[in-house]
Simulated assay, not measured.
Amino acid sequence: MAQPLPAGKLRVGTGWRYSKGGKHAAFDYPVVIGTPVFAVASGVVLDCNDGVTNRPKPGVVGAPSNWVLLGITHAGRKASVLYQHLSPGIDVRKGQRVKAGQKLGESGSSGNATGPHLHLAAMWGHRNRASRYDYLANIGAKEGPPKDGTAANEICIFPPSVVFTPVQGGGRIQPQKTVLAAGDVFVAKLRFGTKDSDSVRRLQFVLNGIKLVNGKTLKVTGNYDIDTKNEATKWQVQKDGCEPGTPAADGNIGLKQAQKLFGPKYRIK
């Protein structure tokens, strides 16, 4: 994340697509060269590149640039954040562990850039040098930005701000307080077949943060589908101690189970 400019909040120049329609699936922050860039969360530097001058090569796909690929944990899952077009002389090295808000380098205009800016992309999984652009893979020509934070390719996290919240003052970063991390949960909605429910979205979000044997990461859709039912059943058996095959382990969440599962940050109704 780049440090906020004196004028105020950071401005996103390019988002899901370029002005001419090409896929971008990231955020471009137009900031002056030398703006400090910080880690959005604690993690490890999966890989990085340095030593490229701030002489942009617009339109040259694959032109070398300075970048940092940061491996973090988000919503209980591994994720990667790519910082690109940095100035030469980055502050970190491959394999280094960093803390949230730690300086990674400074913004620049290296590589395929039309001018100074910070390109920031986020994706699920810990990526490497060869797969750092996987967030762009298999995004349809007419596909719009995802509604649940994950693109149809199940790799790209968009907007990348899903994994961070910029804090004014010193460019420090604190973890995002997502709307799904608290709020109202209506038990009547926690049933197989429910569609487009915020209560189900909160259930899917919470289940994704719990380690279950043979667990599966759910897409946060709000639809209580068979995958959601199966994960809820695993929680009932593995965490709530219910006997498999009994009504208490049928995948539907009752009042007492909801109180245990969601905890004090949620209002169970």
Rank of each mutant, 00 (worst) to 15 (best):
A39E: 07
P56W: 00
V44I: 14
G76T: 11
T73P: 03
N49Q: 11
D47T: 14
A41M: 06
G101D: 06
P36L: 11
P88N: 08
T53R: 14
D47K: 08
G59T: 03
G62W: 01
G43R: 07
S65Y: 01
Q102G: 02
F38V: 13
N54Q: 11
P36K: 11
Y29R: 03
G62S: 05
V98D: 12
G51M: 09
V32M: 15
K94G: 04
T73Y: 03
P30R: 12
N54V: 04
A79C: 06
D50K: 09
P64L: 10
V44Y: 01
V44N: 10
V44K: 15
S65E: 13
S80E: 01
Q102V: 01
R97H: 13
T35V: 14
G71Y: 03
P56L: 08
V52T: 09
S42F: 05
S87P: 05
I33M: 13
V61P: 01
G34H: 08
V81C: 02
A79T: 01
Y29L: 13
L46N: 00
I72C: 10
V52H: 09
D47V: 04
N49I: 00
R97S: 15
V37D: 04
H85C: 04
P58M: 09
R93I: 10
A100S: 13
Y29W: 09
L82G: 04
F38P: 01
T53A: 15
K99E: 09
G59R: 11
P36D: 10
G71S: 13
H74M: 13
I72E: 01
L46D: 07
L82E: 09
R55A: 15
N49F: 02
L69V: 08
K78L: 14
Q102W: 01
P58S: 12
